[in-house]
């Protein structure tokens, strides 16, 4: 369903991605792991063109994301076209990025009503059902600033889901949370996985990745170092770099 092919991303002289190639099947959950600065968040942001990649391509359902044309004819799609493509891809951010001037319910309604132009009453019923599902129906009228980090992040998930996306991208969604709030967010993501949502996650929660993901991709310095079935990759890392990464992770975890 998603094909990433030779994606290169440069920030000036720095090469953040050095030819990333992988695929994600429909209903599959893939985790990107790796040390900070390895380019995993950049990769994720290229997948809905929040970050413009320089070479290669990201294809979702046969359509190249961000560019039209081929070869030397290739150019960035128009803003309206980019927006249309992003509607099929939901994204949740590390820092929640809820719309601060809107209530929880308005945040969830924003996409369906103002982007898709759906009737408000109908969208509202669905939004409330979504909030019910993540256990925040009681907070529908609150402003984001009044919510805990974990609650805000669950609202951000509901906001993305309200667009009925075909793919969900999660960018280190638990990294900014207090440890005791991580569980509720992971629980929400686990629920989505069980429903068969296609998902790509950048995460530092190795235990969670092992349990929920079908496959894990380990990145370092903008490249894929090792990829494979989640459980196997974590239990039997083949490369020295992944072994070292997992060891550091375990030591940190024990602390």
């Amino acid at each position: 369903m998603i094909v990433v092919e030779g994606v290169v991303k440069r920030f000036g002289a720095l090469v953040a991605l050095r030819g990333m190639t992988f695929e994600v099947a429909r209903g599959e959950v893939v985790c990107l792991i790796g040390p900070s600065g390895s380019g995993k968040s950049t990769m994720l942001r290229c997948m809905n063109f929040l970050e413009r990649y320089d070479e290669g391509r990201v294809v979702i359902d046969g359509e190249t994301i961000g560019y039209e044309g081929d070869g030397s004819e290739r150019r960035v799609r128009r803003a309206v076209d980019l927006a249309r493509q992003r509607r099929r891809v939901g994204m949740v951010f590390q820092s929640y990025n809820l719309f601060p001037h809107q209530t929880v319910l308005e945040n969830v309604l924003e996409g369906p009503v103002h982007v898709l132009g759906r009737p408000k009453a109908e969208a509202r019923a669905e939004a409330l059902a979504l909030l019910e599902k993540i256990g925040l129906a009681a907070k529908a009228g609150e402003r984001p600033a009044r919510l805990s980090g974990g609650q805000q992040q669950r609202v951000a998930i509901a906001r993305a889901l309200a667009m009925k996306p075909e793919v969900m991208l999660f960018d280190e969604v638990t990294s900014a949370l207090d440890p005791e709030l991580v569980g509720e967010v992971l629980q929400a993501i686990r629920g989505l996985a069980e429903e068969g949502m296609t998902m790509v996650l950048v995460t530092h929660e190795i235990a969670f990745a092992r349990e929920v993901a079908h496959r894990i991709i380990f990145m370092d310095e903008g490249q894929i170092v090792e990829a494979g079935p989640a459980r196997e990759l974590v239990m039997n890392p083949r490369t020295v770099r992944l072994q070292a990464f997992l060891r550091r992770f375990r030591e940190g975890y024990m602390l």
Partner: peptide, 29 residues
């Protein structure tokens, strides 16, 4: 903040719509 416009883009808003519905109301406050 960049995160706000990113979030608006991620739900499929055009830059113009994002400016009207997100950037302006937040900036005005």
């Amino acid at each position: 903040p960049r995160g706000l416009t990113d979030a608006a883009s991620a739900i499929g808003m055009t830059p113009r719509l994002a400016f009207r519905r997100m950037v302006l109301p937040v900036a005005l406050r």
